[in-house]
Amino acid sequence: MVTWLHGLGSTRSTVLSSRSVVRGLFLLASLIILPAPAAAQSVPKEYQLRAVMLWRFAQFTEWPASAFESPESPLIIGVLGENPFGDAVRVAVKGETAHGRRIEVKYFRRFQNAVTGCHVLYISHSESGRLTDILAAIDRKPILTVSDIEGFAREGRGIVRFLPEQSRVAIRINVEAARAAHLVLDSRLLRLAEVVPSQ
């Protein structure tokens, strides 16, 4: 919530730049007029926080250079399956960067599309049945996989799992899976997480 507000504050601060005044006004208007905030409000608070964390994970993770087409290429966050965040992810990443790259959000229905077109991939509950296929398809591609699905990090080859805890974010990270994906996770992130397999 606080971070979300921070994102809003950040948006306001860009208003100070004359070039972005129009855009800022447009954004403000869209926040008020569009049903997005109403939709966001209907999203559970837990998911609002997780929406923010998705791009924050990106900030604490390093990809190999081959993961991007060019230095200017955006960092893409993908949501596979049923979207539990509503518009929250799109709102959260607006104006934010990770490793100096713009962040884009994409929504996927089919995992075959998802495994080639994103850097962070949230795998929704709706995909529980196809999880093994999905992870197999990802194989060792440099994709930070995130999910709520039970056993995602511990048994499976998923990397980050949101642990179900009320209003307090706790995550589990499978460092071997991350290493296999050629991703380097910031130790600060690891410090906040429950790391598996435990040493």
């Binding site: 606080v2 971070t3 926080l49 924050r56 604490f60 974010v169 910031d186 600060r188 410090r191 906040l192």
Partner: peptide, 15 residues
């Protein structure tokens, strides 16, 4: 400050 970035980001007061 560097170490505190993650706890701030993820609202982890304990850490």
């Amino acid at each position: 400050a560097d170490n505190s970035a993650a706890p701030l980001v993820f609202h982890n007061k304990q850490t």
